[in-house]
Design a protein around this nucleic acid. Sequence first.
DNA 1: ATGAAAGCGCTAACAT
DNA 2: ATGTTAGCGCTTTCAT
Lengths: 333, 333
Amino acid sequence: MNIYDIAKLAGVSIATVSRVVNDSPRVSEKTKQKVRAVMEENNYTPNVFARGLGLDSMKTIGIVCPDVSDAYMASAVSFLEHRLREYDYDCILYCSGNEQKKKEKALELVMKKRIDALVLVGSTYAGEGEKGDSVDYIINAAEKIPVFLINGKLEGENVYSVYSTDEVAAYDAVSGLIESGRRRILFLSDSHSFSANRKLEGYERALREHGLPVLGELKLYAKNQVHYVRDILLARRALVFDAVFATDDGMAVGAVKYAHARGMEIPKDLAVIGYNNSELSVCCEPELTTVDNTGEKLCNITVDNMMKVLKGEEVPREVPVKCVLVKRCTTDF
Amino acid sequence: MNIYDIAKLAGVSIATVSRVVNDSPRVSEKTKQKVRAVMEENNYTPNVFARGLGLDSMKTIGIVCPDVSDAYMASAVSFLEHRLREYDYDCILYCSGNEQKKKEKALELVMKKRIDALVLVGSTYAGEGEKGDSVDYIINAAEKIPVFLINGKLEGENVYSVYSTDEVAAYDAVSGLIESGRRRILFLSDSHSFSANRKLEGYERALREHGLPVLGELKLYAKNQVHYVRDILLARRALVFDAVFATDDGMAVGAVKYAHARGMEIPKDLAVIGYNNSELSVCCEPELTTVDNTGEKLCNITVDNMMKVLKGEEVPREVPVKCVLVKRCTTDF
DNA sequence: ATGAAAGCGCTAACAT
DNA sequence: ATGTTAGCGCTTTCAT
């Protein structure tokens, strides 16, 4: 059942059917009714490929993230999908992993789909992520369609960044730790992404500005898995620390587990701060003080901006968004 | 840059270019080389819309789930995406919510995209889900393309179900509880989906077969949120129970929190079993005994079967998959 | 092995 | 207000 069939059945031309489908004002109400009736009866659906071919757009947005099974990514994708749906855009999803080659491959594939815009979720796609990573592949994509980074930052024509101010959030969190008497604060991270690096900078600045040394032994890289972190911490019996600042809740919970295993009291013997305010943070005992990076806000701003850009309007290239520290029970300030 | 440009530059016809693109054997190696070179130089990419129009397929699979921000859905989507990518299929994602109207709308929209197959993740799309729900919209979709249910079960032409045997898993878990001396076991659930109902059946069968009464007061419906569950449990001071079987880890952790709040010892005073073996289950204290519903397995079987169906091969309409009970610290059997 | 040409189903400019 | 028609870029049959 195609547009010709409908036209024939309704006794009009295909142009009129097309106009009805697109709700053009240049069709009389009467014929509109008639044509609509015929379409209903035959439950006709315009062929999206043909339409796409003519308009060179299928109203779809590409969403690329390292891995949707990560809680932060998943919630971001969920927010994006809902907001984009409001505007009748579909989402095509691509999980790229974190490796440079795979990220490049992901963008190459997703760009072939002639999407209308591209969203890159996670700071792995940022300009100053893992060292050695090039961002040319992103810049190239931006030559064709607008590219939106969620929690990433990259300067370039047609690329728009919305990100949390992780440096400040980390600075504030670690400062709180120091001001409440902590002296040896462990920095626990699972990546060298743009965002993780900003957190590290905030951590170091807090130490420096409070006259504390920045110690290499107090920077630990691990996996974002509860038991993994607990175990590597237990394995380093020589390592002394009275607080932990983790770049993700999973690692922070690992630190809490470590404290339990060693019979340490939280927050007395060990203070812990996590990141992301995920459901994990209210599962452990005591419950985690954590940084809420306001993922929903980032997504909303991104979608709003995207719709403007697609209409040809101007929007800021860069939007920093403040995080908020959610104080629960693993800290005493 | 389209197929005509390439043809001109390579000094061949568009038919030849098309053949090269599709790696047809009916082109001489020599011209293949030449054409490929020209394509590379101009980094030509065939227009997917035009191709879709001709072939009536764009090699995309529709994935619909209630909400990707849910950990179980997110991991399923992640598995599916990866496996489908192997076969050069793209994924278009739709989060439908749980309401009948929205689910119908979701399928209607996703079907318009002329996807090659449809995956429905979560038992909300099953045949015996929320009462009053019709499954006609799924049956209708299956008239056009194969439909695959993950953790759902529905009989119908062209629909394929892969699901965990939740009834048995629940039966085994609750039986363990009873045999270790529990007498008043609270059933805690957040939905009336197909899967939740199977769990309830297993729970009731275990009680019955052990000569215990099935009590309405011991079936509680809540949200899958830690604090929410803790609070409603605390609010029902009159409700007495010595064990909890929850249909999702979040609620189980809520029960653990409740025990803490009331100064009860786990598992001595209260035994708890969760479901899904999510990261949450290793965050709480003590760590959760939980049912692993092997989501990855369901996804793998689904993708394998889908590829066969798309090739016209036969596959079983229904594949039940066993769950495994992961015993940790909130039970004493 | 290669080319010419007819669709695929739609949109939009142009004509009436 | 409605119809006619030329693309959009590809695949595929039919010639050669």
